[in-house]
């Protein structure tokens, strides 16, 4: 992919293997990734790097991904960055909860490569 500026994706994910998976998939398709395992650091990283998309694991050890999303959506400078929730919770009401939390989309674990990439492309081409 020949792009002057590769699109940047901030991945907030505490599981090392999943982080590697998301990174590898995005990297293979020409996206640049910024990674953090801690929700608390996500806001600062978003301010610093201005990513084009944020992939947010909802189940984080310290602070919930929904909380972090709320911080981002409450920030005037960051609120336009789309946030895609990634969660292993796939129960009734989860999707609504996540959408109400301000996330633009929702990918449930386990992912398939195709749907994962489709969702990412939907937001940042």
């Amino acid at each position: 992919m020949l792009q002057a500026m590769p699109k940047k994706v901030l991945i907030v994910e505490d599981n090392e293997l999943n982080m590697k998976l998301f990174h590898d998939l995005l990297d293979a398709h020409g996206y640049e990734t910024i990674q953090t395992r801690e929700g608390e650091k996500a806001l600062a990283l978003a301010r610093e790097h201005r990513p084009d998309l944020i992939l947010m694991d909802i189940q984080l050890p310290e602070v919930s991904g929904l909380k972090v999303t709320q911080w981002i959506k409450d920030d005037a400078d960051l609120k336009d960055i789309p946030v895609v929730a990634i969660t292993a919770f796939a129960m009734k009401g989860d999707e609504e909860r996540i959408r109400e939390g301000g996330c633009e989309a929702y990918i449930s674990k386990p992912i398939t490569v195709k749907s994962f990439l489709d969702t990412v492309r939907r937001f940042i081409g």
Partner: peptide, 27 residues
């Protein structure tokens, strides 16, 4: 069971994701 699901789905995500990437011959 809810937390068990989560604990199982997380590694399964890696299993399915990486094997899917291989299957798709992504690299």
């Amino acid at each position: 069971f809810a937390s068990l699901t989560h604990e199982l789905r997380t590694p399964l995500n890696a299993v399915l994701g990486f094997s899917d990437a291989m299957r798709e011959k992504l690299f």
